[in-house]
Amino acid sequence: MKKFKLKVLGIFAMTLLSLSLFSCDDNGNDNNNETTSRLMVKMSDAPGDYDEVNIEVLDVMIKANSDSGDDGWISIGDKTQVGEGKIYDLLKLTGGTNIMLTDSLVPSGSLGQIRLLLGDENTVVVDGEKFALTTPSAQQSGLKLQVNQTLIGGTTYEFLLDFDVDKSIVTTGSSKYILKPVIRVSTMEASGVIKGIVSPAVDYQVLASVQQGEIIFSAFATMDDKDGDSNDGDGTFQINGIPSGTYTLTLTPDPTSGKTPITVDNVIVYNGKTTDVGSVAFP
C-alpha cells in the first residue's frame, strides 16, 4: 500500500503546477473563467443489505480523453488527503445525503473520464461483525468512469457517483468479501431527482425506486428507530441521477413489516430539476 500511495503522490506532484494556473483569487473568483470550469464530484449510495460499507478514497482524477492508458491524468482530489485516504460509510448516504469528493477549477474543454482511486482500508460490517473488503489487483489502479462531457468555460458541472453497494460486494463464502466497484455516473445537467417523505416516519426499511428499461434507480428512506436518538431519520428519501421522463415511483417496505408496496404514478422528472412527490403514507 505504501508504494501505491507514493505513486499517487508522484502523479499529484507532476500535475500541481498545471493546476495552479487555474486558481481563484482572494475573493474566491475564477481568475480565468473563459478557460476553466468548476467541477464538483459527489458520491452517493445505492442501497445494500449490510450494517456498514466503509470505503477508503485516496484521490479523484480526470482525463481529457477516453484512452484507457495511464498517461494524461490530473489529480483534482482534496490536496490535504491525496495519498492519505479518507474513509466513508456508504450506507450513511441515504435520504438525499451525499459527500463532496472534490470541488475544483479545471481546464475547460473535453472531459473524457473520471478516475476514483480507492485504498485498501475497505471493510464491510455484516450482523455486527467487520470483514475486510479485498480489492482485486485489476482495480487497484483506480476505477475509470467514462463521462465524455464538454466543459464550457465559466460553467459549473456537478457529477454524482452512485456507488451500487449490492452489486459492488461479492462474497465467496468462508466470510470472504471482495470489492468490485459498480458506479453509475450522472450529471445534474443531464438528469433529475425525485424526493419525498414517508410520513409518519417508520421503524422499518423502505426502498424508494423507479425503473427505466432494465435500469433501476433507488434509495432508502431514512428510518425512525423509535429510540429517541438524535440520529433517527424523518422518513425522507431522494433518488438521484434519473433521466428525464415519466415514472411510477414504488415504495417497498421491509417484508418483515407486514406492509405491502405502494406506488405513485405519473411522476415527471426534468433534467436539472428536483421533483418533490411530497408526503406518502403506508395504510
Rank of each mutant, 00 (worst) to 15 (best):
K2V: 01
F4Y: 12
T15Q: 08
S23N: 10
D25E: 04
N29G: 05
N31R: 11
N32R: 05
T36H: 11
S37P: 05
R38Q: 14
L39V: 02
V41T: 05
K42C: 03
V53P: 12
E56Q: 15
D59G: 05
D59W: 07
V60R: 05
I62H: 03
K63W: 03
S68P: 00
D70R: 05
D71T: 10
W73N: 06
W73M: 03
I74Y: 13
I74C: 09
I76L: 09
G77K: 08
T80G: 06
V82I: 15
V82A: 13
K86A: 10
I87N: 15
Y88D: 07
L91F: 09
L91N: 08
K92V: 00
T94Q: 14
G95R: 11
G96R: 07
T97V: 10
I99P: 01
I99S: 03
M100E: 05
M100R: 01
T102Q: 04
D103V: 00
L105N: 08
S110E: 13
L111A: 04
G112I: 01
Q113R: 06
Q113P: 01
L116R: 05
E121W: 04
N122P: 05
T123R: 15
V124C: 14
V125G: 08
V126T: 07
F131N: 05
L133I: 03
T134F: 14
A138N: 07
G142C: 06
L143Q: 06
L145T: 01
Q146A: 11
N148V: 00
T150C: 02
T156M: 13
T156F: 10
Y157L: 05
L160M: 09
D162E: 10
F163I: 00
D164R: 12
V165T: 14
K167T: 01
S168C: 03
S168V: 01
T172I: 08
S175A: 11
S175Q: 15
K176A: 09
I178T: 07
I178D: 04
K180R: 12
P181D: 08
V182H: 13
I183K: 01
A190G: 01
G192A: 04
K195C: 02
V198T: 02
P200L: 11
V202Y: 14
D203F: 02
Y204C: 05
V206D: 15
S209T: 03
S218H: 10
A221R: 01
M223A: 14
D227Y: 11
G228A: 03
S230W: 06
G233Q: 07
T236N: 13
I239F: 11
I239G: 04
I239T: 07
I239L: 07
N240D: 08
G241E: 02
I242R: 07
T246S: 11
Y247H: 09
T248G: 14
T248W: 14
P253K: 09
D254M: 02
P255K: 14
S257L: 09
G258N: 09
K259I: 05
K259N: 13
K259M: 14
I262V: 12
I262D: 04
T263R: 10
V264H: 07
D265C: 02
N266P: 02
I268A: 15
K273P: 00
T275Q: 12
